[in-house]
């Protein structure tokens, strides 16, 4: 009986969270469609064609991933606008460095641009499929025929390995810099960038 209750509570929490986030994302998308359709066609009455207007063989491969990437990017973008608007207002009122809650929000949201950026690129590259050059060349026609898949796999693994090592190096350096904290300013107020231990 207890297990059932717990399961139901978890289910309820997920449902509420999802329904809380989803309408905002959709409403944001609706506003963007209006704005962009105007920018694209320069008329309020222009029709933006949905996916069902295009033949099936011209659809991108992974529509769900594309959809969520786009919404994540736009949702985060909206959040950034809100955060920065409030932060700018506080800065203008010279209250920014005293409002701990705002400083916390700013600090905690530092990974969000990376996520938004990646989601945006995923949107672009997933959304362009199946076209490499829209209307002219499909992705599968653009690959080098002479380069066998074994070579591609070799270089893909090579890059993954190299980037993994570089990411670890990056994290190490970031951690050490953060651990050190900001430099205490000298008597003249200058700060010098010195290597960390």
């Amino acid at each position: 009986m207890d297990n059932d209750l717990l399961l139901h509570r978890i289910h309820f929490a997920f449902t509420i969270t999802y329904h809380y986030l989803f309408p905002q994302l959709t409403m944001g998308l609706a506003l963007l469609i209006v704005v962009f359709s105007f920018l694209t066609y320069r008329r309020w009455e222009a029709e933006v064609k949905g996916l069902d207007h295009f033949p099936r063989d011209q659809w991108p491969d992974n529509i769900a991933l594309l959809y969520y990437s786009y919404h994540i990017m736009v949702g985060l973008g909206t959040i950034f606008i809100a955060i920065m608007a409030v932060a700018t207002w506080l800065l203008w009122r010279r209250k920014l460095f005293q409002s701990r809650w705002m400083l916390w929000i700013l600090m905690v949201s530092f990974p969000l641009p990376y996520i938004a950026n990646t989601a945006g690129w995923m949107t672009a590259e997933l959304g362009r499929q199946p076209w490499l050059i829209h209307g002219l060349m499909r992705t599968r026609d653009g690959s080098s025929h002479m380069v066998s898949s074994g070579n591609s796999l070799f270089t893909l693994l090579g890059f993954m390995g190299l980037y993994t090592v570089l990411s670890m190096l990056f994290l190490l350096l970031m951690y050490r810099h953060l651990e050190r904290g900001p430099e205490a300013p000298t008597a003249t107020g200058q700060r010098f960038e010195t290597p960390v231990y």
Binding site: T155, F159, L169, L173, P195
Partner: peptide, 30 residues
């Protein structure tokens, strides 16, 4: 670029490593 695919990729990796070597060396006094 298709025919020289392998050496070009290797050159890319070497260029990355060369740059990383130059810029990372002074990050720690060790």
């Amino acid at each position: 670029f298709g025919g020289f695919y392998l050496p070009l990729m290797i050159v890319l990796w070497l260029l990355i490593l060369r740059g990383v070597g130059v810029e990372s060396r002074s990050q720690f006094i060790n």
